[in-house]
Design a protein around this nucleic acid. Structure first.
Lengths: 103, 103
DNA sequence: ACTTACGGTAAGTCATGACTTACGTAAATG
DNA sequence: CATTTACGTAAGTCATGACTTACCGTAAGT
């Protein structure tokens, strides 16, 4: 149920802002925090949540840590949507046919 | 920014359960509430949120209202993911090349 | 018309979680 | 080896939002 984590994690606005920041390329915690109206520890906490959801990853760079996008998170969410979409369309077709028979 | 609504709306577990219930076909508020451990008004509130996010729609059926999946919501989320994905991959390519030059 | 079934809305309660400050740790720099 | 820089974690505060009960409107059945 990793898509569940992705949904809950991406629901928060500032956490989504952190994620969107990495859309334009990797960045350190400081750099991310400088572009946002929250403290650096807050950013660290958000990054932890994003990591747990497989949405970002980090690699050490001196004393800093360079964060970047990680694909498995979004991939999981996308796959869930596809599956949902297919089911919904199928069942909608069945429903429409039943409705037609009833008139 | 309709994908924002979709994310925030689908983050709640019971609201997601309501949504998933409609995956297998249309249902009334009562039917949905009977399958969940919350009160009927709670379900009504969740359905309102899902409607505002274009995730479900309803049509009157006697005194009841038949709810079903509506595609624009999930479509908006899917499109956002696609765009994000493309940008992230492009910028990751740029970053990888820069990294290569530096050794 | 009266009653019953089905839903939406209001108001109030309570828990979750997002933020802050304070503190501890690890790597570079002098 | 002391200092600085960059992060992560802990503890405590506060607001958001999910739930409940109570109430009101509306359409069908008798």
């Amino acid at each position: 149920m990793t898509y569940v984590n992705v949904l809950t994690v991406l629901a928060d606005p500032t956490r989504r802002a952190v994620f969107e920041r990495l859309r334009s390329g990797p960045a350190t915690v400081q750099q991310i925090a400088d572009g946002l109206p929250v403290s650096r520890p807050a950013v660290s906490q958000h990054l932890k949540a994003l990591r747990d959801a497989d949405l970002v990853r980090h690699e050490p760079q001196g004393t800093a840590r360079l964060y970047s996008i990680h694909t498995p998170g979004l991939r999981a969410l996308r796959d869930w949507i596809e599956g949902f979409w297919d089911d919904a369309l199928d069942n909608f077709k069945v429903y429409a046919e039943e409705k037609n028979e009833h008139r």
